[in-house]
Design a binder for these strands. Sequence first.
DNA 1: CTTGGAATGTCAACAACGCTGACTTAAAGT
DNA 2: ACTTTAAGTCAGCGTTGTTGACATTCCAAG
Lengths: 174, 174
Amino acid sequence: MADGKAGGTQSGEALLFLTDEQLRKGIEAMFFAYRGFTADPDRILEKYGYGRAHHRAVHFIARAPGTNVNNLLAILGVTKQSLNRVLRTLIEDGLVESRVGVQDKRERHLYLTETGQSLEAELSEAQRARMRVAYRDAGHEAVAGFRRVLEAMMDPDQAAYFHAMSKTLSKKEE
Amino acid sequence: MADGKAGGTQSGEALLFLTDEQLRKGIEAMFFAYRGFTADPDRILEKYGYGRAHHRAVHFIARAPGTNVNNLLAILGVTKQSLNRVLRTLIEDGLVESRVGVQDKRERHLYLTETGQSLEAELSEAQRARMRVAYRDAGHEAVAGFRRVLEAMMDPDQAAYFHAMSKTLSKKEE
DNA sequence: CTTGGAATGTCAACAACGCTGACTTAAAGT
DNA sequence: ACTTTAAGTCAGCGTTGTTGACATTCCAAG
């Protein structure tokens, strides 16, 4: 436990040889890759005076148009106050529209305006471009593995949102 | 460009079929997985009153004992002032030792104390545990793919640090 | 030996974005 | 009628990032 060179904790030896060193490399790969992952959007956001929190909000509103605030809160995993600060500026700047629910008037359904859609497109395109190159460089088998490991790394409840996301294109609006 | 359902930008069709939808899923997988990735360390850090910045510093000092501040700065990609604030508390709390260089006395070489090593071990063990489970669940082919995609996602200079990291166990101290 | 520049550290101020706690409004459920 | 839920707001705080300015120390070149 002192040096963790090769005799460290291991499990599942029957199937996988996982030295602490290999696991550490995986950890560092996540760290460096995530920085690359956010680098392009960060540069774009800076032009408009927004931050990552704005990007996340815009992304998931684009993904599930008409979602309400509570749902977005659960996906993003932040507090109401934190999201509200971001959402307010996006609404004030005319990127997001907040419509009062018809069935339940307490709820606000969120939509991107045309301006919002164009920012989202710009951010998304930059991020997808990087993913596309990385996917192509790595090959399609690598992509499948990449996705499998990432899914296994999520917290179960987070993973549920991740899977639901594909289907959340069904709008439960009014 | 309005909906990006299936007719979006594609490249490398000869080898890979990459719809915008698949790329978006990859992006979201990174988002949710990174949250899982940091969740365990975050809980531990909270016990001691530290944050992620402390974790990163401790991790890379453990990785390259005797590294100087400038090198750490380049790896972490933050400003001197930002790192210094974190480093100061770690030194005050007796987790990190800063030794004046012998060859060049302007440089400070950084080392973990025993206390620092034990915190690092606790953080690292938690994070490795999650990686281990994720790796096992995904299978070893998936692991190789995971690593390949992550590497392809890094900025070139970041990737250089990532690769150098393995060899930086060579101490250039005094 | 003096001087320029590199490495380091420090101070102040600020911004983004998390958090808690308290409170209001409106609408829905019971 | 009463309670709960959804949303928004205000105030305050902590971490971590940023600039800019400035001091110190010390190597190295003139």
